[in-house]
Amino acid sequence: MIIDCHFHLDERLMPVDTILRKMDDAGIDRVALMAPLVDAFTEPPPFLISALQFLLFHRPLRWAGRAAVSNFTKTGDIKILGRPCPIYAELDNASVFKTVDAHPDRFYGWVFVNPAGQQDPVAEYDKWRDHPGCVGIKAHSFWHRYAPAELIPVAKKGAADGRPLLNHAGFGTHGDFMPLLHAVPDLKLVLAHAGFPLYADTWEAIHHIPNVLVDLSQTSYVSERILARAVAALGPDRCIFGTDGPFGFHDRDHTFDMGLIKARIEKIFPDSAVQKKLLGENFIRVAKVINS
């Protein structure tokens, strides 16, 4: 079973019917949905994406990459190509699980939490944790601007349930996940986007911690080269296929290309056993979902 572990449900960009059609076209069996985080924005052109990845991947140049992606207004909105994009402090988990209920054979749901917002993360997780489609907790310590240690209370509940926490880490204190792991050592932590923004530094830091994995999502952050190097650094048991749709490179129909990252994995790793681990088996193991 092929599972996309990272997809934002934003019907302004991709209605559910379109997602289902594109899943079929790409050969993706299931998608783990999460609430949208930001208003729709113009995707940067590929040449800028390549430049950003180069800057972030090389430590001496990372300061320039950080200046490009860690650019916030005084009110906390993220600037993309110089334009402010409002970030949602409160996340619409209800719409995610309503969609899971409508298509239980195609979708799972993450519970998106924000300790810097008004919704209490523990209460929000408790609201959805018994839903049959719930696969774990989603967080974005980068754009919501908090230290991952603030996730400790909800992470303890997720770890007790055997569920993972998927976090998009940031720079400095917003990316320091070690205090979280020290407080919840049995937490299955998944770092989004191949360990963005520190990549190889992150792989080295987590190499000896088997319960920390990365997903391989988002064409803006993960090139073919970064994808291949992440798997080489951590091994095929600790990397998980995802897309971060509907954000990223577009298909010929000018909507998100759901099959691109899957095709990259199949190209880079011709071994069918490795493909199965990356494209579904690892997520099934970590999220404890039923393989059916």
Rank of each mutant, 00 (worst) to 15 (best):
R83Q: 15
A64K: 12
M14E: 06
V111W: 10
F112Y: 12
S70D: 15
A116R: 13
A123D: 13
D120L: 07
E11W: 00
K127I: 00
F41P: 10
D120I: 04
T73L: 04
I137K: 07
T75E: 15
I49A: 14
E90S: 11
S50G: 09
T99G: 02
D25S: 14
L56D: 01
K138H: 07
E11L: 00
K127W: 00
K22I: 08
I80H: 05
C5F: 08
V31D: 07
L56Y: 04
T73Y: 06
L55N: 03
A67P: 01
H8M: 05
Q53Y: 02
D39V: 04
R83D: 10
L20G: 10
R59I: 06
A64I: 15
A26V: 02
S50C: 02
I87T: 13
V100A: 00
P104H: 11
I137L: 09
A51I: 09
E124M: 13
I80A: 08
G117R: 08
D4G: 01
Q119D: 15
Y125L: 13
R62I: 10
A32D: 07
I80T: 05
G76L: 10
D39L: 13
V113R: 09
G27F: 12
F112M: 09
T99N: 02
I28L: 14
K138Y: 05
P132E: 04
A94F: 03
F41E: 08
D130A: 14
G109N: 01
R83M: 12
A64W: 12
V113I: 08
D77Y: 07
G133K: 03
L20F: 09
S70A: 15
R83A: 14
R30G: 09
A94N: 07
I19C: 06
R83S: 14
A102Q: 08
L81G: 15
K127F: 00
I87N: 07
A35V: 00
A67F: 11
P132N: 03
V31H: 06
